[in-house]
Write a protein that binds this DNA or RNA. Structure first.
Lengths: 189, 189
DNA sequence: CATCTTTTTTTACAAAACTCAAAAGAATAA
DNA sequence: TTATTCTTTTGAGTTTTGTAAAAAAAGATG
């Protein structure tokens, strides 16, 4: 059982019994190196990941453009939800943008416990709901804020990432070119 | 019980019993006029809506800019999920962009049946999951496609809307100005 | 029906962001 | 360490999109 995961689970209102069951259903801790993929385009996603440390990007990689849709870091959960829930192959990839430590749980293992324990099913759906809310908020920010304001908000919330991952990933997440981000950074100070 | 809702529910794998229970939990059909609000900024969202006909926009209205995050139309479900699930006041509004017929179900009514019937709880969570997937897909499209391609894809999928709601709403949904959309429309033909 | 309002389109102009290319700086590997 | 690769910055020029204002078209109202 991993400490970080347990702390994370304790923030939900789960019984201690459920916490133990969930914790025991995850695979052993994995270390992933920078630029390793947890998932590549056209594969099927069979796992849900818990990021203990480091940073995993949910990214769409096309010939001419890569776009990061989200990051998983610091005790958060990430997967390619579309593929994970619909059993289709993924358009998105999961890429470690810094050295990371993660846990993973397979769809089967997860379904086993959500089917057996209603409380755990509820917990899982609350994760989907939180993920939806996060993406909606991001969408609001992308459409209403200027590039400069998007960057400012980003450093307010995730300032630590600025120093631990290449800026090109942040610019991609903020939907601008690395050049534009570089210019914003020099213009601010 | 409304025919459209029943047809919609039959597409999920719900038992007939659950379908009847869900149908009976909704309020009477409401007609909303173009430009009526189902929900305004800073209110709390207490309802989930089923759009029978017409078109409801999920919109963020700011001083200088309005942005549409999604449409509900033709037998689909819509609400301001952030407010609905977190009990916070909404930043988003729900605006009828054409004359619409809708049903609504209150949070209380919904929770009553999801708590009593696990199958209905599952159904509700599948709606959240589908909503998440829809928003993720939209996000991919907004970040990877050019304005022209976004418009082309939109008319492929929702061509009927082009003729039934003002173009300014479509341009907002596609994250471009009405002028840009107008230029695209003349350049295509 | 005539009028008023809203929506759509068009224009000219301005500004923002992107592309391309190159150099400087960091990080990584041999 | 040095070499190599990757990242960030900078500059110039181009393209795209946005702004503003006005005209045209469509729709609503009395």
């Amino acid at each position: 059982m991993t400490n970080e995961l347990e702390i994370f689970l304790k923030k939900s209102n789960l019984s201690q019994e459920s916490i133990v069951i969930i914790c025991n259903s995850w695979n052993k801790e994995i270390s992933v190196k920078k630029k390793d993929y947890l998932l590549r385009k056209n594969q099927k996603e069979n796992y849900l990941y818990f990021v203990i440390s480091g940073c995993i990007a949910l990214i769409i990689e096309n010939e001419n453009k890569n776009s990061i849709l989200g990051f998983g870091y610091d005790n958060s959960i990430i997967t390619s939800f579309i593929s994970f829930s619909t059993e289709t192959t993924t358009e998105l990839s999961l890429l470690a943008v810094s050295e990371s430590k993660i846990l993973k749980i397979s769809k089967n293992q997860l379904y086993k416990i959500t089917n057996s324990y209603p409380e755990i099913a509820k917990w899982y759906y609350s994760i989907i709901e939180k993920t939806l809310i996060g993406h909606l908020k991001r969408q609001v920010e992308l459409t209403t804020l200027s590039p400069k304001d998007r960057y400012k908000l980003f450093i307010e919330r995730s300032g630590n990432l600025v120093n631990s991952i290449p800026l090109k990933y942040i610019s991609s997440y903020l939907n601008m070119t690395p050049e534009t981000l570089s210019r914003i950074r020099t213009s601010i100070y």
